[in-house]
Design a protein around this nucleic acid. Structure first.
Length: 496
RNA sequence: GCCAAGGUGGCAGAGUCUGGUCAGACGCAGCGGCCUGCAGAGCCGCCCAACGCCGGUUCAAAUCCGGCCCUUGGCUCCA
């Protein structure tokens, strides 16, 4: 059973194969603002792919770029007092991006290359393209001649003759063909661009951004060439997997292929995986239209596990709807997994747990869940099916624990529960990146002891028949985020 | 206008490559039951019902072919 993925270039499902190493390049993001849940969807799916490849035994070399040279970044210079240059803005949002990534429990990439660090490699690549006849200098800028690269359009099925002119009017006049794209741009950011993208009024002090020396002009790298230069620098001429948002297929990824393959003569990426966009109430999740939910806000409100469970609710290649309903569903699914995990661990630790007890149904359910999970993951990373396999296992665990609780002389099947817990930890934990168990820091320990005290009081009230008083205590605890559940062996609680 | 991805039950979301075994699994919402002082959690059962529209091919079409409608993304550096 091997991994099958949907490859945009082949336009079909293909079997993924690689020798021991896998190189994975992900088009990260432009650090011009706080990242939102749309960006995080790509990160999540790249992360789960990375985790699944790890699980399959590959050695994954994962690189994710950070674009820190951009008109939108420049446009924000001066918006805060400490933002005196493009780099200041970029540093602020690079930091919030890394915080967000850590908060989402993403595996670290091997490298997060930044454009500002790779200008020499970018210049070299542009020079190579000029030498080989694929690019030309014009007015201090350098453009890629799309008619010189026969395969141009193969990823997005674009026809050069059908494409409309790209770029500003003054840029178009410098180009040989309307669809030629810039590899190097003379001068800094234009005043119109800086004003257009700005969220504040620049007045007379319009920032122009950073510029670098080059054989053609003092200027800035083009918008597509950075990914070609950085991926090749860190992962070599041919990538195993290139991942990105579907909105980048054209022109960004198309242009990356043209630049890289023209320069090296090698296949740039063996597989192209594109993640569908996140739709928020029918609208694309984008900072430009205002319905904007940042990762830090979402982490505060929902927590990492509900967010990751939400993303696991739809295939990477499909669009996914972000609505109150779909978020609520994800929270329920996560709660169910988490509660069952806690219940299994508790049963495992209890004195009712026996090495010789045996529940054949539970043992079979664990094996089935593992098999179904792997089959779903290999089937183009079908995360909803994979999660369903885990939820089937929750049924079996709960049935087992219920059955034992109902009979005073029965015992938990230690071995089966141990297997079930291990399956949750490996598949939901390691592969899906969910984090079981509540925090165990000092604050929570103290809170737990206090809750126990309140529960003792409540139990006394219940025994005295003062149910109204008992319910008041339960409601009060819920108000501060502690959920009480009465069970056969007394009340248990969970921190929400 | 051109390119791309989609349109499946109340919601969400597989299946389309390889026509029949699947209109599947899981979850949410809803209904009934067990359990419970009540609630929650958990378990069991139910949920009559959906393949955008029109035509074609076929013994057989969600699936193949043709046309049309609609949504989203891209063609202005946006995951």
């Amino acid at each position: 059973m091997s991994l099958v993925v949907t490859d945009t270039l082949e336009d079909e499902r293909v079997e993924f194969t690689a020798d021991g190493d896998v190189t994975l390049y992900v088009c990260g993001l432009t650090v011009s603002d706080d990242p939102h849940l749309g960006h995080a969807r790509l990160w999540f799916h790249a992360d789960v792919l990375h985790r699944w490849l790890d699980y399959l035994g590959y050695d994954v070399r994962h690189v994710e770029n950070v674009t820190d040279v951009n008109e939108k970044i420049t446009a924000r210079v001066g918006e805060r007092d400490e933002w005196t240059a493009e780099r200041d803005v970029a540093e602020t949002f690079t930091a919030t991006t890394f915080d967000a990534m850590r908060g989402l429990n993403l595996l670290r990439a091997e490298v997060y290359p930044r454009v500002t660090e790779h200008v020499p490699e970018i210049r070299d690549l542009v020079e190579t393209l000029i030498e080989k006849g694929y690019a030309y200098e014009s007015g201090g800028s350098v453009y890629f001649d799309v008619t010189s690269f026969d395969d141009y359009g193969k990823l997005s099925n674009q026809d050069i003759d059908e494409l409309e002119a790209q770029g500003e009017p003054d840029e178009r006049s410098e180009k040989r063909n309307p669809s030629d794209f810039a590899l190097w741009k003379a001068d800094g950011v234009s005043e119109t661009a800086a004003r257009e993208h700005a969220k504040h009024d620049h007045g007379d002090a319009v920032p122009t951004g950073e510029t670098w020396e080059s054989p053609w002009s003092e200027g800035r790298p083009g918008w597509h060439v950075e990914c070609s230069a950085m991926s090749t620098t860190h992962l070599g001429d041919t990538l195993d997997i290139h991942m990105g948002g579907r909105d980048l297929v054209f022109p960004h990824h198309e242009n990356e292929i043209a630049q890289s393959e023209a320069a090296t003569g090698e296949t740039f990426a063996r597989h192209w995986l594109h993640v569908g966009l996140l739709a928020m109430e029918g609208e694309k999740m984008s900072s430009s239209i205002g319905n904007f939910w940042t990762v830090p806000d979402a982490l505060d409100e929902l927590g990492v596990n509900a967010i990751r469970t939400f993303y696991a609710g739809a295939a990477y290649r499909s669009e996914q709807a972000l609505t109150e309903e779909t978020i609520a569903e994800a929270e329920e699914r996560w709660e169910r997994l988490s509660r069952t995990y806690d219940r299994a661990v508790e049963a495992l630790d209890s004195t009712e747990s026996r090495a010789k007890a045996e529940d054949g149904d539970l043992r079979e359910a664990v094996a089935t869940a593992r098999g179904d999970f792997a089959a779903a993951m290999n089937d183009d990373l079908n995360l909803r099916e994979a999660t369903a396999a885990l939820l089937d296992l929750t049924d079996a665990v709960n049935r087992h624990v219920d059955a034992v609780d109902d009979e005073s002389d029965a015992a938990y099947d230690y071995r089966a529960l141990h297997d079930a817990v291990a399956a949750f930890e490996t598949l939901a934990g390691d592969v899906l990146g969910l984090q079981f168990g509540s925090a165990t820091d000092g604050d929570v320990d103290l809170a737990g002891e206090l809750v126990d005290l309140v529960l003792d009081v409540r139990e006394a009230e219940r025994e005295a028949g003062n149910y109204g008083r008992a319910d008041d205590l339960r409601d009060a605890l819920r108000d501060v985020g502690v959920e009480i559940e009465d069970g056969p062996d007394g009340a248990t609680y969970r921190f929400e």
